[in-house]
């Protein structure tokens, strides 16, 4: 099943950065990599439910602003203590300058 939702304009996210997107009571994080590819994950850190969009993107890593838990946002993989639970990721497509994520 697919459920493509428009999250933002492509230009809303700076390169190597992240922004928060809330939809239907859920919160997501939309990333733009240094090589200009877009990704999406759940918006909250799996450690203490902090908004990752307040965190720091370096290359393909998002670091939580609270306790420095790190994830590879392209795969959702947790990269060691204090985080041990992976982030859920969502398919992303960019069409006509808009970023869509499949939240189904």
């Amino acid at each position: 099943m697919t459920q493509w939702i428009e999250a933002c304009a492509a230009g809303d996210v700076a390169e190597e950065d992240v922004m928060r997107f809330d939809h239907g009571g859920r919160t997501f994080a939309i990333y733009r990599s240094p090589s200009d590819t877009y990704y999406a994950t759940d918006g909250l850190c799996t450690h203490e439910k902090i908004h990752l969009a307040d965190g720091l993107v370096m290359d393909h890593t998002i670091e939580c602003p609270k306790h420095n838990g790190r994830f590879d946002y392209t795969t959702g993989a947790a990269k060691g203590a204090p985080v041990c639970i992976n982030l859920k990721t969502y398919p992303v497509k960019v069409e006509a300058g808009k970023v869509f994520i499949n939240i189904a």
């Binding site: 902090i50 908004h51 307040d54 965190g55 720091l56 939580c64 602003p65 420095n68």
Partner: peptide, 11 residues
């Protein structure tokens, strides 16, 4: 407030 400074402190 909240997590407004975490990113810049990390940088």
């Amino acid at each position: 407030p909240g997590n407004s400074i975490g990113r810049d402190v990390k940088l």
